Computed example of a mutant assay.
Amino acid sequence: MGRRGVALRETPVLVTGASSGIGRALALELAGRGARLAIAARRAANLEEIADRIAAAGGPRPHVLETDLSRPGAAADLADRALAALGTVGVLVNNAGRGLAAAQCVTGDDLAARELFEVNFWSPIALTRALLPALTGQSGTVVNVTSTLQAVPIPTLGYYGAGKAALGHMTRTLRNELAGTGVSVLEVVPGGTDTAARDVDLLPWRNGPMRTPPPVTPGSSARAIATAIEKGKRRRVHPRSSLVPLEAPTLGRLIAATVARRLATPDPRDTTPERT
């Protein structure tokens, strides 16, 4: 069941992780529907190319906001710059994400793991907090991009899956906390998507990757997300087949167990640090 939707034309929107993949496609899609954009990511050159393309198509040129959300405090700074650029924010899209294929017995809580959680979990929470006064004034929308991996515990993708599971839980909690404020909360759950860094390509396969269903395009994901924002949806899973592990967690665990048998994961007896 949806809530009041958003007319995207002239709506000020901040999109993080907009330099590639779903974020890039979503920036183009939102611009095509008339939104005024601020686009954020680490790779400024990629953002400038997207901004130029949107301007060449006749839309207002997006504000380019270079940022590294793996740094504590970067999200609050980004919120300030987005407000200065756009005047206010009516839709916040927390799409920035970092991948990591690593076994816990090797990586533990080292810098790569902590940076992943900073980007994938803490930054969306910090941005939402900083922009909530503006969103409340606009009866706006928070969009958090999670993943079907929150329900599929595949070896070496535990950090990514755990971060997305935590964000998914916080998204649903946020929706309850903001009931009656006029702010909508949308969880977007992408399945297999044809991006530059697909999870399946990061895994340590023994004899090549397993066959998986064909990935959807970033453009199809972007269209699904934009339409979900317009219709005031609470959750959008794309493709819809990715609902299966979310609604039947037992199947998600079976899928992970099948994948585990094909992976060359480290032996923890060879990697555990010696105690002194």
Score class of each variant (00 low, 15 high):
Gly182Ile: 00
Gly191Asp: 02
Val188Asp: 14
Tyr160Met: 12
Gly192Leu: 15
Pro155His: 01
Gly163Leu: 04
Thr181Cys: 08
Ile154Ser: 10
Gly180Arg: 01
Ala151Asp: 15
Gly140Met: 06
Gly158Trp: 02
Glu187Tyr: 05
Val183Ser: 08
Pro153Glu: 11
His169Trp: 11
Thr141Arg: 15
Leu178Asn: 12
Val145Cys: 11
Thr141Ile: 07
Thr173Leu: 13
Val185Trp: 10
Ala166Thr: 00
Ile154Gly: 12
Gly163Val: 00
Thr146Asp: 06
Leu186His: 04
Asn176Gly: 15
Arg175Glu: 04
Val142Asp: 09
Thr171Arg: 15
Tyr160Gln: 12
Ile154Val: 15
Thr136Asp: 07
Gly137Cys: 09
Ser139Trp: 00
Tyr159Glu: 05
Gly180Lys: 03
Glu187Ile: 03
Gly163Cys: 03
Lys164Val: 02
Gln138Asn: 13
Gly140Gln: 11
Pro190Thr: 09
Gly191Val: 04
Ala166Leu: 02
Tyr159Cys: 08
Val142Asn: 14
His169Phe: 13
Pro153Asn: 11
Tyr160Trp: 02
Gly180Pro: 01
Leu174Lys: 04
Thr171Tyr: 13
Thr136Val: 12
Thr146Cys: 08
Gly191Gln: 06
Arg175Gly: 06
Met170Glu: 03
Asn144Glu: 14
Val142Trp: 13
Thr156Ser: 08
Ala162Ile: 05
Leu174Thr: 08
Gly161Asn: 07
Ile154Ala: 13
Val145Glu: 01
Val183Thr: 06
Ala165Gln: 09
Leu186Pro: 01
Lys164Phe: 02
Asn176His: 11
Thr173Trp: 07
Gly191Leu: 14
Ser147Gly: 09
Thr181Asn: 11
Gly192Met: 15
Pro153His: 09
Pro190Ile: 05
Gly137Ala: 14
Ala165Gly: 15
Leu167Glu: 06
Leu135Phe: 11
Val188Ser: 11
Gly140Trp: 03
Leu178Ser: 12
Gly161Gln: 05
Gly163Pro: 01
Pro153Trp: 03
Ala166Glu: 01
Ser147Ala: 10
Glu187Cys: 10
Arg172Trp: 08
Lys164Cys: 04
Thr146Gln: 05
Asn176Asp: 09
Val152Ala: 13
Thr141Val: 14
Val185Gly: 10
Ala151Trp: 04
Val183Lys: 04
Val152Asn: 10
Val145Gly: 07
Thr146Arg: 08
Pro190His: 08
Pro153Gly: 05
Ser139Phe: 00
Thr181Gly: 15
Thr146Met: 05
Val152His: 13
His169Arg: 14
Ser139Gln: 11
Val145Tyr: 02
Leu157His: 13
Gly182Cys: 00
Ser184Pro: 00
Leu174Asn: 02
Val143Lys: 13
Pro190Trp: 02
Val142Ser: 09
Glu187Asp: 13
Val183His: 10
Thr148Phe: 09
Gly192His: 05
Val189Pro: 05
Leu149Arg: 06
Thr141His: 09
Val145Met: 11
Arg172Ser: 04
Thr148Gln: 11
Ser184Cys: 08
Ala134Pro: 06
Gln138Ser: 14
Tyr160Phe: 14
Glu187Val: 01
Ile154Thr: 15
